[in-house]
Amino acid sequence: MTLQALTANRLLDGEVVFWSGDAWVEQFADARLYDAEAPAEAALASAKGLATVLIDPYLIAVTDDGAAPVSFRERIRALGPSDHLDLGKQAQGGAAIAAIQHAHGAARSTGRLSLIRRKP
């Protein structure tokens, strides 16, 4: 199966958090990556019981190399807004953040790109 991580927003301040295996942490790089369904689901189930700590815990798909969430939306959650690179999790910089920033998306070559050639 594809790798998964467990994420949520913290009730008190809305901060994006990830489950590290023993704590809720703020950086995706510290998230525990699950390569099996059962422990991931078990972690999700226990997170759902933390109603005064978390809002809406859910599992996200992670790229095969474990470096970044698959979806664009989850990458922005793991980084921060692209109009303020000094804000959010990305502000701390480093290799793990850079890896998310430079992760390649899903298929970009839908074929349509080549249709839009610009005149010189």
């Binding site: 009730l11 008190l12 809305g14 994006v16 809002i55 922005i76 959650r77 807004p81 959010g88």
Partner: peptide, 26 residues
Amino acid sequence: LAGDLSEDQFKPLRLMNGLYLQLHAY
């Protein structure tokens, strides 16, 4: 915060006060 309201119950109340949960924070 005390757990007397669930998120399902609280969400419409906070929304009526303009408080959303967005991607990075409220």
